[in-house]
Design a protein around this nucleic acid. Structure first.
Lengths: 108, 108
DNA sequence: ATTCTATATCGGAATTGATCTATATAGAGA
DNA sequence: TCTCTATATAGATCAATTCCGATATAGAAT
């Protein structure tokens, strides 16, 4: 046990970018930050790329790129419904990060 | 309260680099990773730049630069004794990060 | 005073990151 | 089938990061 900090580097790299940190934050409470969706529930399924694009003010390709980085770090998961791709925060991943920092803080 | 993830960006940027994450990890248990020091206690005062330089295999200017980044992110503190500068991990900062991730994980 | 030692600063090279525009693809609906 | 919509990919550009060698500085020791 007692995972070392270097294990977190991939996740931290993903969240070290302000846009991605902001997106991640929004995804933790979608109804507070995004309008309702026609196909796909904000909480159940996640938020579609288009909404995230609008909210960030970035272009769609840039947002797609950010989302892939978050996903390959295991911080979000994606689900495709019809034409849309919905991204959902993975709270378990955040909790694991919290654990590692917690035990780092109280390590001998 | 409930600090948002973007607040962590400066800290995360500092720790998103493998060398800095590794150094931070070593600093959490100096006696396990560094030889005893003549002037300055490993635990009490921290670890001198020279030891960190040797252990990383990087050059001294590069390590100095990494340490300044960690310090300005509030993750380590420094103390100068004679010719040496000793760096010590700030566990409180790590704990605060753990808190933010913890409450992010259980947010809705 | 001079030299030695530890760390800091400077300037530059190579790499990686963030972002855009343009275009492709895939599925839905008419 | 044709078109429309949402997302993906490609390619380019500009900025930021990482790292090094050379040199400066500051304090100790001789």
């Amino acid at each position: 046990m007692n995972k070392p900090l270097p294990d977190l580097v991939p996740s931290l790299r993903a969240l070290a970018n302000p846009q991605r940190a902001q997106i991640m934050d929004w995804l933790l409470d979608p109804p507070a930050h995004f309008p309702p969706q026609r196909d796909g529930d904000l909480i159940q399924d996640g938020v579609c790329v288009g909404f995230i694009t609008d909210k960030t003010g970035l272009t769609q390709p840039t947002v797609t790129s950010h989302m892939k980085i978050l996903e390959s770090a295991g911080l979000v998961s994606s689900k495709k419904i019809k034409n849309w791709v919905f991204y959902k925060a993975d709270r378990g991943a955040l909790d694991q990060i919290a654990q590692v920092f917690g035990q780092a803080a109280s390590r001998r």
